[in-house]
Simulated assay, not measured.
Amino acid sequence: MNSELMTYIKNNKAEIFEHWLELMKNTETERIQSIVSESVYVKVSSDFVETILANPVIDKDSFIERLDDVIQRVVRLGWPLTYLTQGVRQIGQVVFEGYMGAPSSVGKVETKLLYEFDEWLGPIYNEIVEKYSNSWEHTIMLQRVALQELSAPLIPVFDKITVMPLVGTIDTERAKQIMENLLQGVVKHRSEVVLIDITGVPVVDTMVAHHIIQAAEAVRLVGAKCLLVGIRPEIAQTIVNLGIDLNQIITKNSLKKGIEKALEITNRKIVHVESEESL
């Protein structure tokens, strides 16, 4: 980039940023600004523009580090890639129009200047797309791991009795997680009875029933009984209509009744004790 253009950018950073903010209001940043405070939006935007404008005068490693920091913040805030890509284009437009209108640029060859802009902003654009994609994929992977850890917990409620509450759709990948957690939990908690609570499962089709039957059989093989609880009327009707055979699994319509049955299986029961005042 020629020295005159670099001098123009250095001397007009504040004006460039203000003009850039105005142009960005016409893009989908209106949606972004509706979910974050004005101060957060301006701070992140200022750091982004400052990083791009500083590119010609700082070394590559420092620039990549600063750009990576801004992109990670944008990803954490859930802002779209278009904020960055459109932002780069708008920076180029603001700087180009401002510089061409400055007295020092009179007589400059516009074609040559456009070539210099392409050399400056082209690699930045590509770097942003790559880093945003990598950062987004990494974030999604971490979220997926966290969801897997929370999607099928095995909770001990009484000695030798554990409950696995299921919420949401059950697909093949989640079914594998359920199976692993069940078998590991049965051994860890020395469970004799495991209750699978499907109250929060919206749909039980053939595939879901197949996964549940497999899980119950696996639990039986490690020496425990499996109870299926939380069967709502519409779920019961679906199971009957699909011809799914759950005869080998004890079923109850509520977790309360399931726990009562589990206590019975482990030779225990709930006893109501009268208070001293009623005696």
Rank of each mutant, 00 (worst) to 15 (best):
L23D: 07
E15C: 02
E18M: 08
D59Q: 12
Q33V: 00
Y41R: 08
N12F: 01
E50C: 00
F63R: 05
V36A: 11
P56S: 09
E28Y: 03
Y41D: 06
F63L: 07
F17T: 10
Y41C: 04
I64T: 11
S34I: 09
I35W: 05
F48P: 01
D61G: 02
Y8H: 07
E50H: 11
R66F: 10
I58E: 12
E30P: 01
F48W: 09
K13L: 01
L67H: 10
S62V: 08
T29A: 06
E22W: 00
I35D: 05
V49G: 10
I58G: 07
H19W: 00
T27A: 00
S62Y: 03
D69P: 01
S37D: 15
V40Q: 10
Y8P: 08
S34P: 08
H19E: 14
N11I: 05
A14W: 06
A14R: 12
I16A: 03
S62H: 09
M6S: 07
I9R: 03
E30G: 06
V40F: 11
P56Y: 05
S37L: 10
V36Y: 13
T29F: 00
E50N: 13
I9Y: 00
W20V: 02
F48D: 02
D59M: 09
T29D: 06
A14F: 12
E38K: 13
S46M: 08
L23N: 05
F48G: 02
I52Q: 06
V70L: 07
E18G: 03
D47H: 14
E30H: 08
E50R: 12
R31C: 06
F48L: 10
E65A: 15
Y8G: 06
E15P: 04
V42N: 10
T27C: 03
L21C: 11
Y8E: 09
N12K: 05
I9L: 04
